[in-house]
Design a protein around this nucleic acid. Sequence first.
DNA 1: TGCCGCGATTGAAAATTTCTATCGAACTCG
DNA 2: CGAGTTCGATAGAAATTTTCAATCGCGGCA
Lengths: 312, 312
Amino acid sequence: MRSNPKRAVQGDQVDVIDKLEFLMALARERHFGRAAEACGVTQPTLSAGVKQLEDTFGVLLVNRGSRFQDFTPEGERVLDWARRIVGDARSMRQEIHALKHGLAGRLRLAVVPTALAMVEPLTTPYRARHPEVQFTILSRTSIEILELLENLQIDAGLTYLDNEPLGRVTTVPLYRERYRLLVAADSELGDRDEVTWAEVVRVPLCLLTPDMQNRRIIERLLRDTGIEPNITLESDSMILLYSHVRTGRWASVMPARLAATLGLTDVLRSIPIVGFDSSHMIGLVLPAREPMTPLNAALMAEARRVAATLAD
Amino acid sequence: MRSNPKRAVQGDQVDVIDKLEFLMALARERHFGRAAEACGVTQPTLSAGVKQLEDTFGVLLVNRGSRFQDFTPEGERVLDWARRIVGDARSMRQEIHALKHGLAGRLRLAVVPTALAMVEPLTTPYRARHPEVQFTILSRTSIEILELLENLQIDAGLTYLDNEPLGRVTTVPLYRERYRLLVAADSELGDRDEVTWAEVVRVPLCLLTPDMQNRRIIERLLRDTGIEPNITLESDSMILLYSHVRTGRWASVMPARLAATLGLTDVLRSIPIVGFDSSHMIGLVLPAREPMTPLNAALMAEARRVAATLAD
DNA sequence: TGCCGCGATTGAAAATTTCTATCGAACTCG
DNA sequence: CGAGTTCGATAGAAATTTTCAATCGCGGCA
């Protein structure tokens, strides 16, 4: 609706579609004021918009008693439709714009931290093909990615395909995560050509925080050795983990491709971990809507291309 | 938008969805004035609505030089999206209404003339289950049915499933058309227990007009005998055909089920036609949209039930 | 009890609709 | 070829709606 943060004057119309967006914002924020802010309108405007929806349907959509409580069953259904209709309306605008002016706009992506390294192989050729497209890329947990996707706050995600229930999405498998031990060359295990999980579990590790699926996967692999892993440091930032490993006082476990792109100096080594390999598939996740937005269609094509080059 | 033909005063707002309906009306009518009338607004209002769409997209949607010409490629795409979005918006309203007040509203159906007899077995149990639902049933050619369906002017159709390309629809097969000769008992062939196509072709026939698929099917069957059929009278009204056959001076060919419901008096006989049987499947046709409107979902369930009872 | 956060309400200003009436271009037909 | 028509765009006026800022009033919480 309002694409710009501020408008000079009041008075651009909110139509049904915008009101459905109000409802979606309310679902995210669970707070009229914040939802209004997110939509770029004042709280009374958003309140009125929701009330108008309720009037046209003749049904209460939101339970509220002096504050937001939750949605009524009807509200949940309207919300479902809202996501679809709003998404289609956006797709339409994007497609028509693309027909006239070529592919343009901003592609919003959310990526699981361990897959951050796979973004560049997608974006670089994408941008080569479609120079007018801009990118916003967020690092998020796999759960958050699905939520963002659901709420149309991102166009696509890069996440684990074979774990959480994904919902109504289309997927493009990209590669399997295989884990490596990242250590300084002069520290314990630093001289090895390969290590076992049983060995890894003995060194002090820095890993992602437990809300990350990667952390849960690795922790399971570590615990399967029967020994309690020693996770000395955790963070949600891969850069932070990396900077600690570089000191030689910590080690980390990360996917091979990520380790590779972090730039292995001679002080840092990435050592294959042998043993059971409950590797997890990482891939592109897009809303299962037909037809896709042109931006997403191009992204999917790009992902297919990348997947083909990744002999797995 | 305006569901009532007339409003007391001007001034109920047209939002984006209504403007998309303007575009759909324009596609049907190919005339701004008539489209406006169909939408219940004046011609300047509809013109302005279309122009607003064009402004927001920044693209011309309609080619017009002093009169409507056609849609631009972008216009065609918008039209496609319009059908989807408008359809979804209606589904949403209907679903929410059904949640609160039970299944209600008007189910709009278009039926191929020879299948008119199959409507009652659908509507009667439907209405028993959902007494609040009202029906509008049109007799149309199979081609018109697909157009009406495309334009969201009907909710479902009852037509031939295995001939024309159907488009993006869901189908429920109901029964195969098998043909019978309808004649007065005291006229030629009137005393037979069965006849062949070669015999049928010799009597003066009254059939549907050639724009009807049934006519084309039967004509093909007749011509396959190698003899030029004698089609003395044609009409688009089954009742008219029936009234002529009753005189004993004409005969007709019609589906068994239809002949049966026309009420065979002792003067009128329905005689099986033996020989090649290029029978055609008749069934329910609904928009291939997920989820369906509640009215359509119920109709589909009803059709499945009826189909099950028709041992074919 | 008093305070604070939240959402609904109020009231006025502003913008956008809508309509009717009319225009101007292009076609039709005598 | 010119008058009459048809069609869609435009102008102008009236009405409705929208928006926002300010404020209210209910509940929870100290």
